[in-house]
């Protein structure tokens, strides 16, 4: 239960400092309102709705998820973590934190999005639900390992989206497709390959992250 203890520490610290949450919430609001303003009274086509949802999700993720490692590195507390836990524990704890953050963030975004965009109607709910779960997991894993890299690279804020985007691009492309499938109401059987690819992405990212985290973590 050591990763959970690390998660609790981060959660407690987040309550005290509000390092990620505040900017994350504001970012979601800003991104959504920019899109709303630019659309105005126009009707937007279905696949564009799905794409815009993922634009909001990607940029919101980029504003908040690097916190897990960057905050430790910025304040110089990563040495403590070195001394009290094994690398796998640390990665698991940080991943847990980011997973919860991603799920919270995306639930908020999806609810706001379906309230604000009339065109956003899910016809195959199960498909959307599975897409949501799998892509959130993938998003959390990839953004955690990239956060570890940039924290050691001297925490350049602008570098985070630059490094994450190529890694997340397959995930985003598949998720956009699956989201528009579930809006059209494609049957579950027709989308099985795409779901499998998404699951594959999650598994591969998870394995490679655990394999490589040692190298990043040890100076």
């Amino acid at each position: 239960m050591k990763p959970y203890a690390l998660f609790k520490k981060d959660y407690h610290s987040e309550l005290r400092t509000r390092y990620a949450i505040n900017s994350l919430v504001m970012f979601i609001i800003v991104a959504l309102s920019v899109i709303l303003f630019s659309i105005g009274n126009e009707k937007i086509p279905q696949n564009l709705t799905a794409g815009l949802l993922w634009v909001v999700i990607f940029f919101s993720a980029m504003s908040g998820l690097s916190r897990a490692f960057v905050s430790e590195e910025e304040r110089g507390t990563s040495l403590i973590l070195h001394l009290i836990a094994a690398p796998t524990t640390i990665f698991s704890g940080k991943l847990l934190f980011n997973l919860i953050l991603v799920f919270l963030m995306n639930i908020i975004i999806t609810i706001l999005y379906s309230v604000l965009f009339e065109e956003f109607i899910i016809r195959n709910f199960l498909l959307f639900f599975l897409t949501f779960i799998l892509s959130n997991i993938g998003l959390a894993i990839a953004s955690t390992i990239i956060a570890a890299i940039i924290s050691k690279a001297g925490a350049k804020g602008t570098l985070y989206p630059v490094l994450s985007f190529p890694i997340l691009l397959p995930l985003i492309l598949i998720s956009v497709m699956l989201t528009s499938y579930s809006m059209v109401g494609t049957s579950f059987a027709d989308a099985v390959i795409e779901l499998a690819v998404l699951a594959c992405y999650d598994v591969i990212m998870l394995t490679i992250s655990y394999m490589l985290f040692d190298f990043i973590w040890k100076d």
């Binding site: 609790k8 520490k9 304040r75 040495l79």
Partner: peptide
């Protein structure tokens, strides 16, 4: 290992007691 160094920094947003609680939990 017990380690003390000038460049070791404790969690400043917590009290000493909270630091000890979190650290002993993470250590297991």
């Amino acid at each position: 290992i017990g380690f003390v160094a000038p460049y070791l920094i404790m969690y400043e947003e917590f009290s000493a007691w909270e630091n000890l609680i979190h650290i002993s939990n993470i250590r297991g």
